[in-house]
Simulated scan of single mutants.
Amino acid sequence: MPIRHAVVVGAGIGGLTAAIALHRRGWDVTVCERAPEPPATGAGIGLAPNALRALDAIGVDAARAAGSAIPDTMGVRRADGRRLTGAGTAEMAARYGTAPIAVPRPAFT
């Protein structure tokens, strides 16, 4: 079987997750990123239950790998800070079987 090669453009969470998944399926993967290092700004990333299941499917235990905290609520805000959507994590855990987690920025660097 010939070796398959993929080029992933962008080393954000989506690009790196895709690269890990492809590599674990036997692909040779090149990840291209123009930023010389991760950004120093930002508090971290929130991972909803569906994201945690997707990471688990490729063998990444985000909570174990990076440490985590369970926020009281999760939501999306506009650039000006106005809330667009939001949900309590207890309700999310009851509906989806697991609570979302917040992974702090220092876990990425």
Score class of each variant (00 low, 15 high):
Gly26Leu: 05
Gly42Ile: 01
Leu16His: 05
Thr98Phe: 01
Arg83Gly: 11
Glu91Leu: 04
Gly59Pro: 02
Gly15Pro: 07
Leu55Trp: 05
Ala65Pro: 07
Ser68Trp: 06
Pro100Val: 00
Gly44Trp: 00
Gly15Met: 10
Leu16Ile: 08
Arg64Thr: 14
Gly26Trp: 04
Ile70Glu: 01
Gly42Val: 06
Ala54Ile: 03
Ile20Ser: 03
Arg82Trp: 12
Thr30Arg: 13
Arg64Lys: 15
Gly97Trp: 02
Thr30Ser: 15
Ala57Leu: 10
Thr17Gln: 11
Pro104Arg: 04
Glu33Leu: 09
Glu33Val: 06
Leu84Met: 15
Gly42Ser: 08
Ala63Phe: 06
Ile58Val: 15
Asp28Ser: 15
Gly88Pro: 00
Gly42Cys: 07
Arg34Gly: 11
Gly97Asp: 01
Pro100Asn: 06
Glu37Phe: 13
Ala65Leu: 15
Arg78Pro: 08
Pro49Thr: 08
Glu33Asp: 10
Ala90Glu: 11
Ala57Gln: 11
Ile45Phe: 01
Ala18Phe: 01
Asp80Phe: 10
Asp56Thr: 06
Gly67Thr: 09
Ala69Glu: 14
Pro104Met: 03
Pro36Lys: 08
Ala57Met: 09
Val76Asn: 09
Thr98Gln: 11
Arg82Ile: 14
Thr30Gln: 13
Met92Leu: 15
Ala87Arg: 12
Trp27Pro: 03
Ala94Ser: 10
Arg34Ile: 12
Trp27Met: 07
Ala57Thr: 09
Ala93Gly: 06
Leu22Met: 14
His23Cys: 13
Asp61Tyr: 07
Ile70Val: 13
Gly81Ser: 10
Val103Lys: 00
Asp28Leu: 14
Ala21Val: 03
Arg105His: 09
Val103Glu: 01
Glu33Ala: 09
Asn50Cys: 04
Leu52Val: 01
Glu91Ala: 11
Ala57Tyr: 08
Asp56Met: 04
Glu37Met: 12
Gly59Met: 05
Ala57His: 11
Val29His: 03
Val60Arg: 00
Arg34Cys: 12
Thr89Leu: 02
Gly88Asp: 11
Gly59Asn: 04
Leu22Asp: 08
Gly59Asp: 05
Gly59Thr: 04
Arg25Lys: 15
Met92Ile: 05
Thr41Ser: 15
Ala65Cys: 14
Asp80Pro: 08
Gly88Ala: 13
Val60Ala: 02
Ala54Tyr: 04
Pro39Phe: 12
Asp80Gly: 10
Arg95Lys: 11
Thr30Gly: 11
Leu47Cys: 03
Leu84Asp: 08
Glu37Tyr: 12
Gly14Ile: 11
Glu37Asp: 13
Ser68Cys: 15
Gly42Asn: 04
Ala66Trp: 14
Pro100Cys: 10
Gly67Pro: 04
Val76Gln: 12
Arg77Phe: 13
Arg78Val: 07
Ala87Met: 12
Val60Thr: 07
Gly67Arg: 10
Gly26Val: 06
Ala43Val: 00
Gly44Phe: 02
Val103Ile: 14
Leu16Lys: 04
Arg78Asp: 14
Ala65Val: 13
Glu91Trp: 04
Thr98Pro: 00
Leu47Val: 03
Ala51Met: 07
Ala18Ser: 11
Ala19Pro: 02
Thr98Asp: 07
Arg83Tyr: 05
Val29Trp: 00
Ala66Ile: 00
His23Thr: 15
Leu47Ile: 05
Arg25Leu: 14
Thr73His: 11
Arg77Tyr: 13
Met92Ser: 05
Arg83Phe: 09
Gly86Ser: 13
Leu52Asp: 02
Ala69Lys: 09
Glu37Ile: 06
Pro49Tyr: 05
Pro38Trp: 08
Pro104Ile: 02
Leu55Met: 13
